[in-house]
């Protein structure tokens, strides 16, 4: 039996018109791209809405047009295609941290997902939302830079692939065009041993906007480091990858590295600000420390 519940009178006041033609909940991507093409920047894209509803707190009624991606199942897949891992933009943090594939192949991304917000946020927030919000403090962003992820941006009839590193252009800014949607995150896989570490620094363990994040992903051939993805969040206007620090590590084994010196190299290459969550000086010192901690952790994991 279905019980019909009439809407309470006080909730009716602001409703006008017969229905909400401006709320779109397409069932497939093709339809979503058509709508985005038509409305361009005049429509709000809704994914897990953990940012959207906070940003529009008590002003939700002012959002004129909604493009809700919630019902598009093709954006919720995690799969391997030709030695690349493809993650749909609507995959949630919870899915990431529970996925055996992600835990095995991209352990640092899984660890970062586990540190996002709280259980209530992780079940709703999406990887695509984290990327498109483009906060310098977005927890998944440093790991994506470490793994050299690329993003698939689609619009009606066209698509392009953009490197994660090029995507972020400033605090909450990115190079996505108004008629585009982020549909997929693509990460190259390797046969080599990959070991990594994730550090999130904040005032509490849960529900905290990061003061600083560090993602270290090292690729080994025997004991030699052949790739080193060092990336940080909340220390510059965008999440950043420190290529120069990575290069200092190439060709060496962990035992040949001076961790403290590498910590100083990290510290020298970041550009943090003073804000509520920490001062510039604090972030610089902590960056050096957590780099040492991350390398120790990787050493421990490799036994």
């Amino acid at each position: 039996m279905i019980r019909k519940s009439p809407m309470k009178q006080e909730n009716r006041q602001t409703i006008s018109g017969a229905d909400f033609e401006e709320y779109f909940q397409p069932q497939n991507l093709e339809k979503a791209l058509e709508i985005k093409a038509e409305y361009s920047d005049q429509i709000e894209v809704a994914a897990g809405t953990t940012d959207l509803l906070v940003a529009n707190y008590e002003q939700l009624h002012q959002i004129k047009n909604w493009l809700d991606l919630d019902k598009i199942d093709e954006l919720r897949k995690i799969e391997i295609l030709e030695n690349e891992l493809h993650i749909g933009a609507m995959v949630t943090h919870l899915q990431l941290m529970k996925s055996d594939l992600i835990k095995e192949k991209l352990a640092v991304l899984a660890a970062a997902a586990e540190d996002v917000g709280s259980p209530q946020i992780r079940s709703r927030g999406t990887i695509g939302g984290n990327i498109c919000t483009s906060s310098p403090a977005g927890d998944l962003l440093a790991p994506l830079l470490s793994y050299e992820a690329s993003f698939k941006l689609q619009k009606a009839g066209a698509e392009r692939i953009v490197r994660a590193e090029d995507f972020f252009t400033g605090p909450k800014r990115n190079l996505m065009e108004a008629d585009e949607l982020l549909t997929e995150i693509i990460i190259p896989l390797t046969e080599n041993e990959r070991e990594g570490a994730w550090v999130k620094v904040g005032r509490r363990k849960a529900l905290v906007i990061s003061t600083l994040t560090l993602s270290v992903v090292l690729e080994f051939e025997a004991d030699k480091i052949i790739e080193a993805g060092i990336a940080l969040g909340s220390v510059a206007p965008t999440p950043i990858r420190l290529w120069e620090v990575g290069e200092l590590m190439l060709g060496s084994s962990l035992t040949e590295l001076d961790y403290k010196q590498l910590g100083q190299e990290v510290k020298a290459r970041i550009n943090p600000i003073d804000d509520l969550r920490g001062t510039r000086e604090y972030r610089e010192d902590v960056a050096a420390d957590v780099m040492v901690r991350a390398l120790n952790e990787i050493e421990r994991k490799r036994g």
Binding site: D70, Q120, S123
Partner: peptide, 24 residues
């Protein structure tokens, strides 16, 4: 979404009901 007072279990997962637009 920061305090958890509005928590419900939606489709088996903890959810902050203050962050869910009704159509979802």
């Amino acid at each position: 979404g920061e305090c958890g007072a509005c928590t419900v279990i939606m489709n088996g997962e903890l959810t902050a009901s203050c962050l869910v637009p009704a159509p979802q």
